[in-house]
Design a protein around this nucleic acid. Structure first.
Length: 281
DNA sequence: ATTGGCACCTGACTGC
DNA sequence: TGCAGTCAGGTGCCAA
């Protein structure tokens, strides 16, 4: 389920097991995910000390002392699993099939950290010291940073003939939003997902920026709180219960005070959009 | 240059 | 119970 908040929660969950630790062992159990795994992945990471974990958009960067970074992307179905040294201490969700454990790391405490990805849309790559990975080169601003301002989004939307839904999914405009949080942010902002990006007033775009920051911050806070419980139960990081106001609520009454609309689902460029036709204009 | 559609892959769910 | 069809949180690539 990884959009920005889920990836950030995964990063925070992994940090205690990786930051400051040495990766003592690694296995690549197949040659590729979406793209080939680096042939030297195991060799590079084995014995490396992790100096920090960063997130950029939906990517996690595991920084290695003197050896560059590991770049992780969870795709649609990727998960990170933490399992203690004592086997059987954690109960695994039966839906997480061990045959999809594609890359496994062990730290210097014997903790096993597993990249599991049924659909294999995810990626694991290496970034050389001092280099920038090409997948990160053209990303737009981080939505929760000070770089993401009303002026930035107003400029990005100016003259755009694409629906605002598609514009917000464009990672060059703003990085880290996916199908769920775009629906949620537009719902909060009262903007119809079909509206052309270039035809939204500056005032409404400014408000939208605030709603994007709010919904992402709230989701991270929710993920952070559910992380502890969830990890104790299953050892899994990254799948949380979220309460969405629009996404997945087709046919439900609009939650906006005073609105008697009903949430509708439409398909835009092959993806579902959920919105209230009454209060989103 | 933009923009829309497709492809990649597996699993869960629905309806007959 | 089985089977076909549909849908799923992402993103690079291709053609219009």
């Amino acid at each position: 389920m990884p959009e920005l908040p889920e990836v950030e929660t995964v990063r925070r969950g992994l940090a205690p097991h990786l930051e400051g630790h040495v990766i003592t062992r690694a296995e690549a159990r197949r040659p590729d995910l979406r793209w080939p795994l680096p042939p030297d992945l195991v060799q590079v990471v084995t014995g490396a000390r992790v100096t920090g974990l960063r997130r950029r958009s939906k990517y996690i960067l595991v920084d290695l002392e003197d050896r560059g970074s590991i770049l992780l992307h969870l795709g649609m179905s990727g998960r990170m699993l933490i399992e203690g040294a004592v086997q059987g201490e954690f109960h695994r969700d039966p839906a997480i099939l061990p045959r999809h454990d594609h890359v496994v790391f062990w730290n210097d405490e014997g903790t096993q950290i597993t990249f599991n990805d049924a659909r294999r849309f995810g990626m694991v790559d290496l970034v050389a010291p001092g280099a920038e990975h090409p997948m990160l080169a053209h990303l737009g601003p981080e939505p929760l940073s000070d770089d993401f301002t009303p002026d930035v989004l107003i400029r990005a939307f100016s003259g755009k003939k694409t629906p605002v839904k598609a514009a917000l999914l464009d990672q060059r405009i703003v990085a880290g939003l996916g199908n769920i949080y775009v629906s949620e942010a537009l719902y909060r902002a009262g903007i119809d997902p079909r509206r052309l990006a270039g035809r939204i007033s500056a005032a409404r775009i400014s408000a939208l920026v605030g709603h994007i920051k709010d919904v992402l911050s709230e989701a991270i806070a929710a993920g952070g709180s559910s992380l502890r419980d969830h990890r104790q139960a299953t050892g899994e990081l990254g799948y949380f219960q979220h309460s969405f106001r629009a996404y997945g609520r087709e046919g439900a009454p609009c939650a906006t005070a005073g609105c008697s609309g009903v949430i509708r689902r439409i398909v835009q460029s092959g993806r579902s959009s959920f919105y209230c036709p009454t209060c989103q204009k």
